[in-house]
């Protein structure tokens, strides 16, 4: 492990040798009985977008919550393995401490503060930072530059804005903490394809211009692989496959199981036999 300070310097120069986040063989357990992750390992290189893919209940959200330690609020814990963020071991810290270190999770289902205005939501995102009124204004403008829509809706109660705007508020709020890394849980959930594209464009923008590393959990495999550099596929709490996004998108099994296509173009669901899935993977 090198020191954190040197890593930041490396990051400016390009992809660092050391990943910003490395998860090694973790197990996550809820209520001391429900074992959800059975040895997940993954790495997020500094400045990259990494997608975590898989179906319902595969363990995507649990992986993110284990990393952000939000899992402890749901009576869960990481029972084995280790997580290092920016060279420091973080699996026993609190979410607040991680926000301070530069990692913010955007939770599944948006989770805006419904009764606060959009702008108050954003300001709340800077809670852990000690900023003056003027600095907060600057930070707001920085975030509004990425989300011009939010600027228009700044005085609306967040609960009354559209689903896409709420997702933007949640991401913008996370950006107010000036994170080095964002964990996005299902940013496409419940949104129209056009809005999903808009949000992913902004996410890529944030990645490129702010240098924020991104780990995103998605069920929408096609969109996720389009924007990510690298992908991991989770099934039943294990990583079944991983590779550069382009390779995954071209992989025969991924196309069949996650993109609904066969080797000769789009296939009808009717021609698929459900048991084949088991045969293939196990």
């Amino acid at each position: 492990m090198t020191m954190t300070a040197t890593r930041t310097a490396e990051a400016a120069a390009g992809p660092a040798a050391q990943p910003i986040l490395s998860v090694r063989n973790i197990e996550a357990i809820y209520d001391n009985v429900i074992l959800v992750l059975r040895g997940v390992s993954l790495e997020v290189p500094e400045g990259s977008i990494v997608a975590l893919l898989g179906g319902n209940g595969a363990g995507k959200s649990t992986t993110l919550k284990s990393i952000s330690t939000m899992i402890t609020a749901e009576r869960g814990r990481v029972s084995k393995g280790s997580i290092h963020f920016r060279g420091e071991r973080t699996d026993q810290l609190t979410p607040g401490a991680l926000v301070g270190m530069g990692m913010v999770q955007v939770m599944e289902g948006r989770m805006c503060f419904g009764h606060l205005t959009v702008e108050e939501n954003l300001v709340a995102g800077a809670y852990t930072r000690k900023l003056s009124k003027a600095q907060i204004r600057d930070e707001l403008e920085r975030v509004y530059a990425y989300f011009p829509r939010l600027k228009e809706r700044r005085t609306s109660q967040a609960g009354y804005t559209s689903g896409g705007e709420q997702q933007m508020t949640a991401i913008g709020r996370a950006m107010m903490a000036k994170p080095r890394m964002l964990l996005l849980d299902e940013p496409s959930m419940g949104l129209a394809p056009q809005i999903v594209a808009e949000i992913f464009e902004i996410v890529r923008d944030l990645n490129e211009k702010e240098g924020v590393s991104i780990l995103l959990a998605e069920q929408n495999t096609a969109v996720a692989l389009k924007y990510a550099n690298y992908g991991y596929i989770l099934e039943s709490g294990r990583i079944m496959m991983d590779g550069p996004a382009a390779d995954l998108a071209a992989n025969k099994d991924v196309r069949e199981f996650y993109l609904g296509m066969s080797s000769d173009g789009r296939d009808s669901f009717r021609n698929r036999k459900s048991y084949r899935r088991k045969k293939r993977w196990i």
């Binding site: 979410p95 009764h115 606060l116 939501n121």
Partner: peptide
Amino acid sequence: GLGLRAVADGHGAAMSIGIP
């Protein structure tokens, strides 16, 4: 006060952005 109103709207979301 802002932290307080945020916490009232959602414990999880408030925790995730580091409000103690």
